[in-house]
Design a protein around this nucleic acid. Structure first.
Length: 299
RNA sequence: GGCGCUAUAGCCAAGUGGUAAGGCCAAGGUCUGCAAAACCUUUAUCCCCCGGUUCAAAUCCGGGUGGCGCCU
C-alpha cells in the first residue's frame, strides 16, 4: 500500500473536501502544497480552508509565512519534508494536497535546486544586462558557461536563464551537473478530480463571484493598508494582483471580477497541463472523488 | 431625405497598389529556489457584397448593404 496520498489538480476542482474526507478515513494529516496558502492574511482569494472545512484535521504548510516575505519551493521543501517524514514515522498517512505542482514535486523527488539560494547581486547584474543589451545577450552568456542548461531554455525565459547563471556563478558548477534524477523518494499514489474544461470554468466563475461577495476587495485593501505592496510576492496571486491594480486604476468591481475569472481560468489550464505528467496519477471523475475510490487506489 | 465618416480573425486593431503587423481571447506545451510566476507554439487562402481600373487591389473608382455622426 502506498504510504503517501497526493491530491492534486486544478483550482476549484474539489481537492479540499476530498482531502479532509481521506484524512479522516486513513488516519491522515494534510500537508498543503500551495504557494499562496503559506501566506498569513491571504484567505478569501486563496480559498484557504476554513476551520470548519478542516474539520479538526491538522493542516500543515498553511499560514507559515508573513505576507511581506518571499517564499520559494526550496523554503517549502525544507519546511514540509520534515513534517512529512514525521507523519510517516508516527504511522500517519500524509496527504499532500494542493495545486502547486512544483511544490508537490519538491517533496516527492529528490531535489537540491542547485544547492544555492537566490543571490540578489547576481540577479540584478544579469537583469541589468538584459535591459541594456537584451535577453539574447544574457542567454549567450549562459551558452558559454553552461551550454547544457542553455539548450533546455528559451532565450526569452529570462527568469530561468538567470537562475541557471546564478547557480553557475555562485557554485562554480553548471546547473546541468547538479540536477538530481527525478526518482521518487516515496511510495505514493496521486489523484486529481477531472472536470471537463467548460464545467471547471463554470465552477471557477462561480467561485470568483463568491470570493467577491465574501469581501475579497476588502481583504486586498486591508493588506495594502498594512503595508503590503503590489510588488511583493504574495500580491502576485490571482485575485490579489488584479484587485490591487484595479483599485489603483479605479476599475469597477465587475471589471476586476472578469479579469480575475479569466486569469484563474488560464491558471487552471496550466495546472492541468502540469499534472498530466504526474507519475502514479489517476484521474477521478467528480463522481469518483470518494474515499472508497481513493482507498482502492492506495492498495 | 441630404452630407460626412466607417466596414479587416471571437474581440481590439495596423496596413492606403505588390500579395494580410500586433494585442486580447482560445487551444496546445514547457517547468528542479519568485511556479496563482515565467516562458514557448498554433490560430484570417484572405480584408461586408457586386462590378470596374491595373501585370497586380484589403488598399483606387462606381454601385449596394450595415454601423456611426451631422444636417433638414
Amino acid at each position: 500500500m502506498a504510504k503517501i496520498l497526493v491530491i492534486c489538480g486544478a483550482t476549484a476542482s474539489g481537492k479540499t473536501s476530498l482531502s479532509v474526507a481521506c484524512a479522516k478515513a486513513f488516519n491522515g494529516e494534510i500537508i498543503s502544497a500551495d504557494s499562496l496558502l503559506v501566506y498569513k492574511g491571504l484567505n478569501i482569494g486563496t480559498a484557504k480552508p476554513t476551520v470548519e472545512e478542516r474539520a479538526g484535521i491538522p493542516h500543515h504548510m498553511i499560514d507559515v509565512v508573513e505576507a511581506n516575505k518571499c517564499f520559494s519551493v526550496s523554503d517549502y521543501k525544507n519546511m514540509a519534508l520534515p513534517i512529512l517524514e514525521e507523519l510517516l514515522a508516527k504511522g500517519k498517512t500524509p496527504i499532500i494536497c494542493g495545486g502547486t505542482g512544483f511544490y508537490i514535486n519538491s517533496l516527492l523527488y529528490k531535489s537540491q535546486f542547485g544547492n544555492v539560494g537566490a543571490s540578489a547581486e547576481v540577479r540584478e547584474k544579469y537583469e541589468k544586462i538584459a535591459e541594456t543589451e537584451g535577453k539574447e545577450r544574457v542567454y549567450a552568456i549562459l551558452c558559454e558557461k553552461d551550454p547544457e542548461s542553455a539548450k533546455k531554455l528559451h532565450y526569452n525565459d529570462l527568469k530561468r536563464v538567470i537562475r541557471a547563471l546564478e547557480i553557475y556563478d555562485v557554485t562554480g558548477k553548471a546547473k546541468s551537473l547538479q540536477q538530481d534524477e527525478p526518482i521518487p523518494r516515496f511510495d505514493f499514489a496521486a489523484v486529481s478530480i477531472d472536470y471537463p474544461r467548460d464545467k471547471l470554468y463554470n465552477r471557477i466563475n462561480l467561485r470568483v463571484d463568491q470570493m467577491f461577495e465574501q469581501g475579497l476587495i476588502e481583504e486586498v485593501q486591508g493588506l495594502l493598508n498594512v503595508g503590503i505592496t503590489e510588488e511583493m510576492q504574495c500580491m502576485q496571486g490571482i485575485g490579489y494582483k488584479e484587485i490591487a491594480e484595479g483599485l489603483r486604476l479605479g476599475m469597477t468591481k465587475e471589471e476586476m471580477k472578469e479579469i480575475v475569472k479569466n486569469n484563474t481560468r488560464k491558471y487552471a489550464k496550466r495546472q492541468q497541463t502540469f499534472f498530466k505528467r504526474m507519475q502514479n496519477h489517476t484521474y477521478l471523475t467528480p463522481d469518483e472523488a470518494t474515499v472508497e475510490k481513493v482507498c482502492e487506489l492506495l492498495k
